[in-house]
Design a protein around this nucleic acid. Structure first.
Lengths: 314, 314
DNA sequence: TCACTGCCTGCTCATATGAGCAGGATTCCC
DNA sequence: GGGAATCCTGCTCATATGAGCAGGCAGTGA
C-alpha cells in the first residue's frame, strides 16, 4: 500500500464511519470505484487505522477470551473491558459483576459450590441477583474466621451467595492459618470441620480469587500474617496466595511449613476439580494470575483486559 | 431501553464488531430475531456505547469540520485528529501538514498568496511538496526582518512556499514593529515597501497563523517586544496576535498606539479578504483562535480537534 | 371495563456490501 | 528485451443490512 492509497483509505474511513456515506458515494467523492473504496476500507481496518471500542462497564473482550481459552488451555475465560475505568475499585467492580453474571448463566447449575473468601468474593456475593440459581449449597473451601473487626465478611460472603441462590451455606469454622501445626491437625480432626472439608471436596464447582503477596493482603489485614511474614514469603519467591496458600510463579507452594498450618482444600484438589473458577483482576495481581493460570489452578478465569494481555503477551 | 436490552446491545456489539458475526448469527446466539439485533446495534451506536476512532496522523474530524462551518460561519474548516498525539510539537506538525494539504488541493489555485511568518508558517512551508501549485506568487503581508540569530526564517518561509509552487516571493523589507511612529510612517512611504503592501492588498488569498499572548511569542523571541511589553498587553486584555497585531477576545486592537507602529496589512483588510486561511493549533492558542473566528478574521480555519471543540462548546 | 394511544415486533422489499473471478497492467528475473 | 509471476482492477453474483409498514400488545384514562 503506497502513501496515496494510505491517505485515500483514511479519507474513505472518515466519510464512511464519521459521515455515514455509502461506499458508492465515497467513490464518487474521491473518484474511485466503489470496489476500490471497499478494499481501501478493508485495508484501513486490517492495518489498524480504525479502532472500534465498546464503551460500557459490562463490555467484554471476546477476542482476548478466545485467545485465553486457546493459548492458555482454559475451558472458559471472561475478560472485562478496561475502557473508561477510572480507579482500581471500578475495575474490581466490573470484574466481580462479570463473575456474578458468569455464575448466573452457568449450566448445569452447580448443586454444591465451594467458595473462598476475601474482597473479591464479597463483591461478587453482593452483585449476584436474588434467584441467580435455585437451591445451590455453598461451602467454604478454606478457613476464615475473621480475627479483626471486619468479622463475618467471610461468613457473610458464603451466606449471601447461598441465600440469593435459594440454598444454604456451610461455613468452615476454623481460622485460615494456625500458629502451630498441632493445633491445625487437631482442628482438622474435629468431626464438624472434617465434615465440612469433606463436603468441600465433593463440590461440583469452585469459585475463588487470588491475593497478591503484599502488605495489603487480606491475611495481613485479618491478622493471620504480619507484614514481616509476607516479606519473608516474597523473598522465598511468593507471588501471591490462592485459598490462603502462597505460591511462587510456577504455582508451587513457597513455604511447606506454613502451608501445613493452613486449613482448607489443597491446591492439588483445586487442580483436579472439574470446574474451578478464578476471579483475578488488577495490576497488582498480574504475577499471581500468571502463576494460577500456568499451573492449572483454574479451568475458568474471570479477569480484566490488562491482566489478560499480561497473561498472553507479557 | 431497559437494562436487559442495554446488556443485550453490548453483547451484540461485541459479537458484531469484535467477532465479525452477522446480525443473523448473533440473533441465533442470543435467541433474538436479526431485526432485533439490528435495532440493538443501532441503539448501542446512538447511545454512544460504540466508539469508532480513526487513528492516523493524517486523520481529520469531518463532523467537527461541518459544525465549524455551520455554527461559526466559516466557508471551510479543517480539523486534524488529536488521537495518539504525544506532544505539542506533533500537534503542530499534523496541523501544518493539513494546511499544506489544503493549500495543495485549493481550487482555483491562487495567483498571489499573501503570507505571514512564524513557526507555524515555516512548518507549513517545509511540508509543502514541490509542484504543489504552478506559478504562485507569494507576498509577505506583515513586516518581519528578523532581529535575532534565527534571521531569515520569515524570508525562508515565503521563498520556500513560492519556489515549491513554481513562483517567486516578494518580501516586505521592514521590521514587524517600529519603535517610533514616525519611523513606521517613513518606512511605509518608501516606494518599495508601499509597493509590496499594495501587492499584498491585491492577493487572492491569505495564509496566516496567530500567536498566543505569552512570553514564548515570536515577537519576544525576535526582539520586537519585551516580556514586560507582553505582560502589559495581556493586562489590557490581549489574547494573542494576528499578523503582528494584538487583539482582545472580541478581535479588537488592544493597543492602538502599538498597532500604529506595526507594519503590514490591517486586520480589516484581512476581514474583507475573499479567502483568509488561518492555521491555529494547540492549547495555548485556544483564546486567540476563538477571537480570530468570532471576529471574522478568517474564512477558513485549519486547526486541531481540541481547539475545534473549544471553539464550539468551550 | 373498554376504547385509545403509542410502542414494539416481525415482516417485505430495496439497497449496500463482500466473495470470488477473469483480464490487464506491472514488476521481476534472467 | 522477453517471459513469467504477481498484483490490481472492475466486474457478477450472493449475502447482509436498513427503511418502512401492518398487526399486536401493554399501559392509560374515562
Amino acid at each position: 500500500m503506497d502513501e496515496t492509497d494510505e491517505l485515500l483509505s483514511i479519507r474513505a474511513a472518515e466519510l464512511y464511519y464519521e459521515e455515514n456515506k455509502t461506499q458508492d458515494e465515497i467513490g464518487q467523492a474521491l473518484r474511485l470505484t466503489r470496489w476500490k473504496v471497499g478494499r481501501l476500507l478493508a485495508q484501513a481496518k486490517q492495518r489498524g487505522f480504525i479502532r472500534i471500542e465498546i464503551l460500557h462497564p459490562r463490555a467484554r473482550r471476546l477476542p482476548l477470551e478466545r485467545r485465553l481459552r486457546d493459548e492458555r488451555r482454559l475451558s472458559d475465560a471472561i475478560v472485562v473491558s478496561t475502557a473508561g475505568v477510572r480507579s482500581a475499585e471500578e475495575l474490581q467492580e466490573r470484574t466481580a459483576q462479570a463473575a456474578a453474571d458468569y455464575l448466573t448463566a452457568l449450566r448445569p447449575v452447580p448443586r454444591t459450590l465451594g467458595v473462598s473468601w476475601g474482597r473479591t468474593l464479597f463483591e461478587i456475593s453482593q452483585r449476584l441477583r436474588n434467584g441467580w440459581a435455585t437451591g445451590v449449597n455453598v461451602v467454604q473451601i478454606n478457613g476464615g474466621v475473621s480475627l479483626n473487626r471486619r468479622a463475618g465478611t467471610a461468613a457473610a460472603t458464603a451466606v449471601s451467595i447461598a441465600q440469593k441462590g435459594g440454598g444454604s451455606a456451610t461455613l468452615l469454622p476454623s481460622p485460615a492459618i494456625l500458629e502451630r501445626l498441632a493445633t491445625k491437625e487437631a482442628i482438622e480432626s474435629d468431626r464438624v470441620v472434617a465434615g465440612v472439608i469433606e463436603l468441600a471436596r465433593s463440590a461440583d464447582a469452585y469459585l475463588f480469587s487470588a491475593g497478591a503477596a503484599d502488605h495489603n493482603s487480606v491475611h495481613v489485614e485479618s491478622g493471620y500474617l504480619s507484614t514481616a511474614d509476607v516479606d519473608v514469603l516474597v523473598q522465598k519467591g511468593a507471588v501471591g496466595d490462592v485459598v490462603g496458600r502462597y505460591i511462587d510463579s510456577d504455582g508451587n507452594i513457597v513455604d511447606p511449613a506454613l502451608d501445613a498450618r493452613t486449613v482448607g482444600l489443597t491446591l492439588d484438589e483445586l487442580r483436579s476439580a472439574p470446574l474451578a473458577i478464578a476471579v483475578i483482576a488488577g495490576t497488582s495481581k498480574h504475577p499471581v494470575a500468571d502463576a494460577v493460570v500456568r499451573s492449572g489452578l483454574c479451568s475458568v478465569l474471570v479477569t480484566d483486559e490488562a491482566t489478560a494481555l499480561h497473561l498472553l503477551d507479557g
